[in-house]
Write a protein that binds this DNA or RNA. Structure first.
Length: 594
RNA sequence: GGAACCGUGGUGUAGUUGGUCUAACACGCCGGCCUGUCACGCCGGAGAUCGCGGGUUCGAGUCCCGUCGGUUCCGCCA
């Protein structure tokens, strides 16, 4: 049905007879002459219907409408001088049509399938996703996605990795995200869980001697959605034997550099800088710092420790800290604008936001000025390297709250003050993560990464004495303030794994029940191993400069995990439920009546 | 579980404090004219009980409550 793609026609094809198939992108009817922009995946070509060339084709062309599907044949000609269209790659030529076959008519689409559709309500576009997909901007991200996975497979293949599939029907494990469950018909009352990640399988592949594994694999987490979180998403999943942290990091830097070079033509400088978790939290108030701009958090505890402002001194007396950021240029903002900044930090637990606006000659405008001695204020300004028009924002609280609220305020200023250069790709490895984090709700420690992460050798014996101080052999790759993925060197020794389980409050009995097969496997000569997983959807989102991973997935779900096109999820027949021995609770039955 | 924002012809928007709103504009759609357009042009036309339900009021697109859908965020996401 085609000899050429619409988008590939060039001057070199002039004089050739071609057959094209595609959609009517636009029709321009001049009465005695009709132009049609014919579109396929490869682009757009102008085809011309002239009654002097073919009255029969011309008659058909008069009835064409947007999105009609046609096949046309004719001769490629160079456009008349002055009639070229420089906006079109095919703009120097056009095809004079003498045969046309109407393959299918089309209803008028519910929205116009051009760039203007970016403004159309996403709800409508998701209901007609198959129409939205015809648009160039969406096709571009899917093409990029293909190129990225292709480059990824090539890279791993070149380094003798094996792509190995792991089960989708798996088992629910404690900890981690909520599982998607699949009822078993054969085992009434029992459920499979869809994998949150193939974590244990890939470790067992290492026990199985496969040495180098990767998989581009779907993962499922039944948690609430965000712009960068879908209930099903894709990971580039990797595991290697006989490696340490440095090996995995270096290897993945090679992948990133290779993929960016081959798909975007962007050179990623390796090695990618590394930053400890402690440093990231302290300087940027985030475990995924956006390094496209500076604006660091500065500890001013020492400067204000004896000042007259009780809020600061009380916090410091109770083990808190006082930190500040210096927003260049925001010192000129109105009182009203500055006062609204407090709304940025209160959702993260900050009880308030103190600020100092710096004017010409370093005179200050601030509600807390009266609590500070002149020399304290001078020291503060010097610590913050204050200049005219600066706005110094201060939060005093527990370290965690200070970090999070000032970290968010930093991002807010980065956006508001235009500090972010969108064209950049700023990578950073965050390393030396804590192994465990204390959960105030349960009064227990839980795994910060996952319970198979190896402690640093030198911290191993803190596991029982000071669990919060143990650092992990874990690493996250961060790009432009987004967590691209993370991994770790794993525990490969039964006794260490048992100590880890105990540290997170799992009894030996529970550990054996849930992970006995893993503990047993560790007794059969398990090699040291480690790995990582990258979020493919997020990677594409960042590479394509999109704000949502929905733009990088062919058929994404809405915030309440629904599919507006398929109307999934949906009710099932009573018979299906009977086979599964499942009976709906009363509230589920009522909710389903619609 | 919580907070905020959005919902007006097919699409995108306008609609000031409730009152010629008998709902406007652009695009699209339909019909007519047009042989060099390329977001073609010109002329004409159709198309909306303002998401849904209640309330306040003499009067609601506009105010209030609820509900549905969507988005962003908090919690959650080892």
């Amino acid at each position: 049905m085609r000899s050429h793609a619409c988008g590939e026609l060039r001057l070199e094809h002039v004089g050739q007879r071609v057959q094209l198939s595609g959609w009517v992108n636009r029709r321009r009817d001049h009465g005695g002459l009709i132009f049609v922009d014919l579109r396929d995946r490869w682009g757009v070509a102008q085809v011309v219907f002239n009654p002097e060339v073919s009255m029969e084709s011309f008659k058909v062309a008069e009835s064409l409408r947007s999105e009609y599907v046609i096949t046309v044949e004719g001769e490629v000609r160079r456009r008349l001088p002055g009639m070229e269209n420089p906006n079109l790659l095919t703009g120097e030529v056009e095809v004079y049509i003498d045969r046309i076959t109407l393959r299918n008519e089309a209803k008028t689409p519910p929205f116009q399938l051009d760039d203007r559709a970016d403004e159309v309500d996403e709800m409508l576009r998701l209901r007609y996703r198959y129409l939205d997909l015809r648009r160039q901007s969406l096709q571009e991200t899917l093409i990029l996605r293909h190129k990225v996975t292709k480059a990824t497979r090539d890279y791993f293949d070149k380094h003798s990795f094996l792509e190995i599939e792991t089960p989708m029907l798996s088992k629910s494990t404690p900890e981690g995200a909520r599982d998607y469950l699949v009822p078993s018909r054969v085992h009434p009352g029992e459920f499979y869980a869809l994998p949150q990640s193939p974590q244990i399988y890939k470790q067992l592949l290492m026990v199985g001697g496969l040495e180098r594994y990767f998989q581009i694999v779907r993962c499922f987490r039944d948690e609430d959605l965000r712009a960068d979180r879908q209930p099903e998403f894709t990971q580039i999943d990797v595991e290697m034997s006989f490696v340490d942290e440095n090996d995995v990091i270096t290897f993945m830097e090679g992948l990133v550099a290779d993929v960016f070079a081959k798909t975007l033509g962007v050179e990623v400088t390796v090695p990618i800088p590394r930053m400890s978790y402690a440093e990231a939290m302290s300087a940027y108030g985030s475990d995924k710092p956006d390094l496209r701009f500076d604006l660091p958090l500065v500890d001013i505890s020492a400067v204000v420790k004896d000042c007259g402002f009780k809020v600061f001194t009380d916090v410091l007396r109770h083990g808190g800290q006082v930190k500040a950021i210096n927003a260049k240029g925001a010192g000129k903002w109105s009182r009203r604008e500055i006062d609204q900044l407090v709304d940025v930090v209160t959702p993260y637990g900050a009880k308030g936001l103190a600020w100092i606006a710096v004017g010409e000659g370093l005179e200050v405008r601030s509600a807390i000025a009266k609590f500070l001695q002149p020399e304290e204020m001078a020291a503060l300004l010097q610590t913050m390297q204050a200049e005219p028009d600066d706005l110094i924002c201060i939060v005093a609280d527990k370290p965690q709250i200070v970090a999070e609220s000032l970290g968010r305020l930093r991002l807010y200023f980065g956006d508001r003050l235009g500090l972010i250069d969108d064209s950049q790709f700023k990578f950073v490895w965050v390393v030396d993560w804590p192994l465990l984090e204390y959960d105030e709700a349960t009064g227990r420690y839980s795994a910060a990464h996952h319970p198979f992460t190896s402690p640093k050798d030198e911290d191993l014996d803190l596991l029982e004495t000071a669990p919060g101080k143990v650092r992990a052999k874990a690493y996250d790759l961060v790009l432009n303030g987004v967590e691209l993925g993370g991994g770790s060197i794993r525990i490969h020794n039964r006794s260490v794994q048992e100590r880890m389980f105990r540290a997170i409050g799992l009894s030996d009995e529970q550990a054996r029940e849930k992970f006995g097969f893993l503990l047993e496997a560790f007794e059969y000569g398990t090699p040291p191993h480690g790995g990582i997983a990258f979020g493919l959807d997020r990677l594409i989102m960042l590479m394509a400069k999109r704000d949502s991973i929905r733009d990088c997935i062919a058929f994404p779900k809405t915030q309440n995990a629904g599919d507006l096109m398929m109307q999934a999820p949906g009710r099932v027949d009573d018979e299906q439920l009977r086979e599964l021995r499942i009976r709906l609770a009363a509230e589920a039955r009522v909710a389903g009546q619609s």
